[in-house]
C-alpha cells in the first residue's frame, strides 16, 4: 500500500456488527467503518442509555472506556467514545453531536466512572455541558478562566502556524 491510500473497510467486517445494530435499533444514524474500527453515530439524547446497554450486554460487554474526546467542528461539537471489552476482543467507536448554540450531551458517568475527568475536561476546554454530571468545576484550567481554549474560535496570540493553509 502506498502512502496516501487507505482502506475504507477492513478485509473482514467486525463480528459484532449485527449485534450492535440490533441494540442501537432506531437510534443508529449510521453504522460504518473508520479504518479497522466499527463506528456508530447516534443522536445525543440516546447516547447515555445506549452506552449502558452496550456495557451490560453479555456478548459485547464494553466495560472499558478507552477514551472520550470532544472535537470542535465549528458549528457543532462532537463527542467520541472509544470503547473496548476486556473479555472479548471487541472495540467500538460511538459518535454524537451537539449544536454549538446549545452545547450539551448527557453524561455517561453512570455507565463508566472513568468518564468523570474526561467530561470535566471537555466542559473546561470546549464549554460542552455534560448534563447530569455531579461536578463540572474547572479541572485543567484555573478558576475564573475566560473562554474555551479547545475551540477553534479561541485565539492563541503567540501561536504561529508554520505551514498552515
Amino acid at each position: 500500500m502506498t502512502a496516501g491510500d487507505r482502506p475504507e473497510q477492513p478485509a473482514t467486517p467486525s463480528p459484532i456488527e449485527d449485534r450492535v445494530r440490533e441494540i442501537a435499533a432506531d437510534n443508529a444514524l449510521s453504522l460504518g467503518y473508520s479504518f479497522d474500527e466499527l463506528e456508530l453515530r447516534v443522536p445525543r439524547d440516546a447516547v447515555a442509555e445506549l452506552c449502558g446497554a452496550l456495557k451490560s450486554d453479555p456478548d459485547l460487554n464494553f466495560t472499558y472506556l478507552r477514551c472520550l474526546s470532544v472535537v470542535d467542528w465549528q458549528d457543532e461539537l462532537e463527542v467520541v467514545y472509544h470503547l473496548a471489552s476486556l473479555n472479548h476482543p471487541h472495540r467500538l467507536v460511538i459518535k454524537t453531536r451537539a449544536p454549538m448554540e446549545d452545547p450539551w450531551v448527557p453524561t455517561t458517568i453512570g455507565v463508566w466512572r472513568g468518564a468523570d475527568w474526561h467530561e470535566r475536561e471537555g466542559h473546561d476546554l470546549f464549554g460542552l455541558e455534560f448534563r447530569g454530571h455531579p461536578d463540572l468545576s474547572p479541572l485543567l484550567l484555573y478558576d475564573g478562566f475566560e473562554g474555551f481554549p479547545g475551540r477553534k474560535s479561541y485565539h492563541i496570540p503567540e501561536q504561529v502556524t508554520f505551514y498552515g493553509d
Partner: peptide, 11 residues
C-alpha cells in the same frame, strides 16, 4: 490537577 496544563492538544 492542572498546574502543569500547557494545552499540548491545542498547541
Amino acid at each position: 490537577i492542572g498546574y502543569l496544563h500547557r494545552g499540548s492538544e491545542r498547541l
